[in-house]
Design a protein around this nucleic acid. Structure first.
Lengths: 177, 177
DNA sequence: AATATAAGCGGACCGATGGTCCGATTGCCA
DNA sequence: TGGCAATCGGACCATCGGTCCGCTTATATT
């Protein structure tokens, strides 16, 4: 059981992080600043989240929890029951929505994860889901899944511009499968 | 005209950088170490290459110069003259060869470029070439090109394992076009 | 309510890093 | 050979991620 003050501080830190992400670029979010804005000590941030990557990942998971649950236990077309192709397109749509609204967070997280990106639990989950949906269609569904997920890059989203991004991804996926 | 000692130092720095990249991970390459190993002052490194990203990009350009020239002025199937599909597959093959041999350098460069990745001259060049080769085939060749280039991620190469990577990319491209 | 105890807290501290600056040096050309 | 501009080098700086440890406090127990 987590102590009440601990839970309060976890929230404060998360809220401070998203505020800093919103008002400045991803490099504006130093852990010193996060701690200061949250009104806690730096040690607290690290005890809760381990390191910079952990903090950003926690925020990312919070933002994608809904989609994750919908995909596992929700109704079709996201959840089980629909045809794989339907589910896949619906899933990519959901991912696009999250990605477009969190481009800065995405970049910061990638930057922080660096090489561990592919062992990150979040990534593993999306990748496993995509792979299973792509099974049978074409060759090497695992690599296909990597190829699709590679599109969800914060800098790319900003580069092509949100709005255009979602449409492009859908076209791209339609071409691929 | 570049002074003789300046040219010598530029070489020394590049060689030191690749040696450090080879013997340790990408994070082993601090500019202090590069300067020390090259036998020059830190200021020299920055005067030559501007910053960390510039240094890595210079190395990357050196490693890919051959392919760049082959693509522009070389004989088919890489150069002009062959069918677009042939050229595209040949080009991706060349890129794979470079990428597999330079996964660590790729990662380090991505990390250093961060958000400027898509305005990096090197990236622009590859992207423009791919886009022109993809013109007509399918929709939004520009985004297709981004999708293909997104595969060339140092961490991904290490994750799927070199060898497997090239084959997977070729399958992927064949599916896509 | 008093107490014990473990969990939590905060911020000083550390090592490393990217990047700057300027006095000393040195290649180059006349 | 002399003068000068380009080059050099490494001390210096700000910042960052991460650690540490003495102090505080929430909570369970009696």
């Amino acid at each position: 059981m987590e102590r009440a003050d601990a839970a309060r501080n976890r929230q404060a830190v998360l809220r401070a992080t998203e505020q800093l992400l919103a008002e400045g670029g991803g490099d504006h979010v130093s852990l010193d600043r996060v701690a200061a804005l949250a009104g806690v000590g730096k040690g607290t941030v690290f005890r809760r989240f381990g390191n910079r990557a952990g903090l950003l990942q926690a925020l990312l998971e919070e933002r994608s929890r809904e989609l994750r649950e919908a995909v596992v236990t929700g109704p079709p077309p996201l959840g089980p029951g629909a045809a794989a192709r339907e589910r896949l397109l619906a899933f990519l749509g959901g991912l696009c929505a999250i990605a477009e609204g969190n481009a800065v967070l995405l970049s910061a997280h990638e930057q922080a994860c660096a090489d561990d990106k592919y062992t990150d639990p979040s990534y593993r989950f999306w990748h496993a889901h995509l792979t299973s949906l792509l099974d049978g269609a074409g060759t090497d569904p695992g690599f296909l899944a990597h190829g699709l997920l590679a599109l969800f890059d914060g800098a790319l989203i900003r580069h092509v511009g949100p709005g255009r991004f979602t449409d492009s991804v859908k076209e791209y996926a339609a071409t691929l499968i």
